[in-house]
């Protein structure tokens, strides 16, 4: 099978690895926004040992603190698209907890009020 691109100027095709890692998928079953918070409350070393390096890094880092998909992507140097697919897989296998939305929508007035209050305190 041919990779989606020919080799770049640097020689190796930078897209082959992400493509292989995710099986060419760019979407996940569960909608994970860049700011969606996830965590690994129950760490399973046996499961971790079976993961490829990128997924392992995401799994280990997600265990350290509740954080967003974007933070995990940045901390693990795994691009956002790949991180989202790998973390989506872990969530589907119930290895990763996706924080449920606490508000009905990002336009929920209760949420907006709290964000505005918090920002005002920041400026004080």
């Amino acid at each position: 099978m041919r990779p989606p691109h020919g080799p770049g100027p640097g020689g190796a095709n930078p897209w082959v690895r992400p493509y292989v890692l995710t099986g060419g998928r760019t979407r996940t079953r569960q909608r994970l926004h860049v700011h969606t918070l996830v965590s690994v409350p129950y760490y399973d070393p046996g499961y971790a040992d079976l993961l490829p390096p990128e997924a392992r890094s995401l799994y280990d880092t997600a265990h350290t603190a509740v954080q967003s998909i974007a933070e995990l992507s940045a901390h693990c140097s795994v691009s956002l698209g790949v991180a989202r697919v790998l973390l989506g897989d872990m969530a589907a296998r119930e290895r990763l907890v996706v924080n449920p939305e606490a508000y009905t929508s990002p336009y929920d007035p209760r949420l907006l009020e709290r964000v505005i209050d918090g920002l005002h305190q920041l400026a004080r």
Partner: peptide, 21 residues
């Protein structure tokens, strides 16, 4: 075609139970 882009983000902890990105 696959494209890479760089983006940046910041974080503000607004309360014990609320973070803004």
């Amino acid at each position: 075609v696959t494209t890479t882009v760089a983006m940046d983000f910041g974080r503000i902890t607004l309360a014990e139970d609320l973070v803004l990105y």
